[in-house]
Design a protein around this nucleic acid. Structure first.
Lengths: 108, 108
DNA sequence: TTTATAGTTCGACATATTTCGAATTATAAA
DNA sequence: TTTATAATTCGAAATATGTCGAACTATAAA
């Protein structure tokens, strides 16, 4: 099977979501739980609440909320309310789909 | 080594380039030289000229040119004039960098 | 019940993007 | 040299995006 026709509309939405510096930073923060050099092998997807994700980004809460909504809409980030907070995480399965796109066609 | 700090500005440019349906289609055309089911194992990157890439996309030549310029600027597509035509192709090394981003952090 | 904290929605405004047609450049063919 | 083909540049217009503050909702704590 080749990657000739992955649903390009969905793919395009994913790339659009990652095309903004703030959203890319947010997504990256969810992907990379650890600072360089530290040990970290999460069995389960890492979770951050909205506020934590926005730290150091210097954007208004409403803007932060908007960007996370976009990442969620694009299917890249999951969100779930936990008490006063809303937790965010990335499902590893979603990543796999994206990497598939960049792999060259495989035929034998 | 982790992917903690890939140059996010460059990465962002790449995703922005792929965030437009027409540009994604153009890039995909360069990635997937073959129709599904056919045999195809290109030793060298596949090349299309600008006009060929635009076929069936129903956009003006100026728009096509603009989009390819964007893909080139983002470092995703190489371009070189060959006579009357301008040939376009994707360097496999560029793809590798993008896939790295989506891979989870590896620490041992 | 009142108050505080976390996050979202809405409307407005500035900026960026997409697209086209007209004019232009580069190359090859007649 | 003149003509045709391939592609690019430029300017303009329509649309989309990023951002904020104000007002609002959801939940927990006092």
């Amino acid at each position: 099977m080749s990657n000739y026709k992955i649903n390009s509309a969905l793919l395009c939405e994913a790339f659009k979501a990652l095309s903004n510096p703030h959203r890319l930073a947010l997504f990256n923060r969810l992907l990379n739980c650890c600072a360089p050099g530290t040990k970290c092998s999460p069995a389960v997807a890492v979770r951050y609440c909205v506020g934590e994700l926005g730290e150091g980004l210097d954007i208004a809460p409403s803007t932060l909320s908007h960007h996370l909504k976009e990442l969620n809409r694009a299917g890249l980030v999951e969100m779930e309310r936990k008490g006063k907070n809303v937790e965010c995480w990335v499902e590893p399965a979603k990543l796999a789909k994206l990497t598939t796109f960049f792999k060259p066609v495989q035929n034998d």
